[in-house]
Amino acid sequence: MNATLSPGREFATGFARDRIALGAFWILCLLLLAAVAAPWLTPQNPYDLAQLDILDAKLAPGAKAATGYTHWLGTDDQGRDMTSAILYGLRISLGVGVLSTVAALGLGLVIGLVSARAGGWIDALIMRIVDLQLSFPAILVALILLALTGQGVDKIIIALIVVQWAYYARTVRGAALVELRREYVDAAVCAGYSGARILFRHVLPNVLPPLIVVATVQVAHAIALEATLSFLGLGMPITSPSLGLLIANGYTHLLSGKYWISFFPGIALLVTIVAINLVGDQLRDVLNPRLK
């Protein structure tokens, strides 16, 4: 599993050395588990209208509903239990974040490898495109794309892929250029392997590990970006409410003092992002041979 030379055990102890990172790792595991198991953990399906009672709307945290169930995090304007809504939202946020990052990583990998291998004008053209895109902030690129294409789950995933691929492509190209000059590549060429085989079977495994670390932190960025876009009303449709959409929904009630509809989804979002960042930072430190 671990592509570096160090065995898994050494990696695990190295990772656990930082208590905060270890704590973040367990919190992240817990969040992932809660998101996956949301339908079994929550008292209600927040999007099944038959289970909602409008009389339970806007209950404060800790208030008891008519059914006798205690809503620990309160309810929203439809009588939706916030705990349930947050777990379902976490599911969508994490899903979109991970999916778009993995897809962008794949796309960036292929483009970066091809660019490094091809060289010449193809390489120059690809890198100019990368430079051009990276000179604009991600949020602006995503905003423009969504403004032109309209909203939807597929469109926001495409937008998140578009804003991320260039970064991977540039990193992979740099790493691949170094690898392509190594002796094992010469050996593979002598053995008569095809260019594509050398690129994807030999070079790819060597440039992948550092990239996976980068991708971990990028998931947090993708989740934050998706939440922001959803808050602006350009992201997820109302039928798949991510954490960002939940926060946006509570925005209108904030001014009347009903803070919990926005506050708790925000805390969930914050904890997720911080946990991923801490785990990513520690991964980078443990896997970085220069710090050993």
Binding site: A224, T228, L232, L255, G257, Y259, G266, V274, N277
Partner: peptide, 23 residues
């Protein structure tokens, strides 16, 4: 500063409104 990096801008804005304007 780590917190400042992780906090989504829009949510911080909402919380600022909640604390300094509403409360």
């Amino acid at each position: 500063s780590i917190l400042g990096f992780s906090l989504p801008t829009f949510w911080v804005g909402l919380m600022l409104i909640m604390v300094f304007s509403v409360q």
